[in-house]
Simulated scan of single mutants.
Amino acid sequence: MRNLLFTACTFFLLFSCDKGKTVAKTDSDKTDSLTNEEWKPVDSATATKAWIEYATPGEMHKMLAKSDGNWSGENTMWMENGGKPMISQSEVTNKMVFDGRYQVSNHKGNFMGMPFEGMSILAYDNSKKKFVSTWIDNMGTGIMNMEGDWNPSTKSIEFKGKMTDPSRPGKDCDVREVFTFVDDNTQKMEMYGPDSKTGKEFKTMEIIFKR
């Protein structure tokens, strides 16, 4: 009797798995078919023109290039909303690379008595018409990615993105950054993130850069 039940259960599992494969294959076929229907062919001349426009640095890249050089930063950080501010200093070197397409920034300073190093890559994506940014540092092992729009009236870029939240393993949290070009020798970076107790956004950092 036990052998009969085992055989019946095995048959049921195999049948279910096979049925699942069939359904999955059908869904995949539908997806492939839908993709093919949505795909619009592009002739080589149009594709070449679009790629050249995408790869050619423009006015936004020239604006970034004006920030090349060495900067000193006065950093103010808050660990929680309404908390006591922590003040520190940092040094930043900006350099355009790949013939003016990207700006690499290397940051050095200290955080709570520990040496701090960070690096960002900033670019203006001609196709998306947006600024894109990545950030890494020696205080973590992840990469923060953000995208932002240029606001000509405030001379600022408002970035939005996600970063790893170590306090919630496997989870990300929303972050926002406002980078303002105050004048040729002054810039301000304001970072916002969730309060660890409430999850509500608050200002976590402000850096005034001068050269």
Score class of each variant (00 low, 15 high):
96 M>H: 04
78 W>F: 12
125 D>S: 10
130 K>N: 09
23 V>D: 06
27 D>R: 09
125 D>H: 07
200 K>A: 14
75 N>Q: 04
198 T>C: 02
82 G>E: 08
183 D>T: 03
17 C>P: 06
62 K>L: 07
53 E>F: 07
117 E>K: 08
175 V>Q: 06
200 K>W: 08
76 T>R: 10
90 S>Y: 08
84 K>H: 05
111 F>D: 01
147 E>K: 06
28 S>A: 13
155 K>C: 00
114 M>S: 13
37 E>H: 11
97 V>S: 01
121 I>G: 04
104 V>M: 13
210 K>L: 03
28 S>L: 15
79 M>D: 13
28 S>W: 11
4 L>C: 00
110 N>Y: 10
89 Q>V: 08
170 G>T: 05
27 D>T: 11
68 D>C: 05
95 K>Y: 02
158 E>S: 12
159 F>C: 04
184 D>G: 02
76 T>E: 09
112 M>K: 05
193 G>P: 09
202 F>Q: 00
171 K>T: 05
161 G>F: 06
21 K>R: 15
4 L>F: 13
195 D>E: 05
121 I>P: 06
80 E>K: 11
95 K>S: 05
80 E>V: 02
93 T>I: 07
151 N>P: 05
168 R>W: 01
12 F>P: 01
88 S>V: 01
22 T>K: 15
200 K>M: 11
203 K>R: 09
138 N>E: 08
104 V>H: 11
159 F>T: 05
51 W>I: 14
11 F>T: 08
43 D>Y: 12
51 W>R: 14
153 S>N: 10
69 G>R: 04
120 S>R: 07
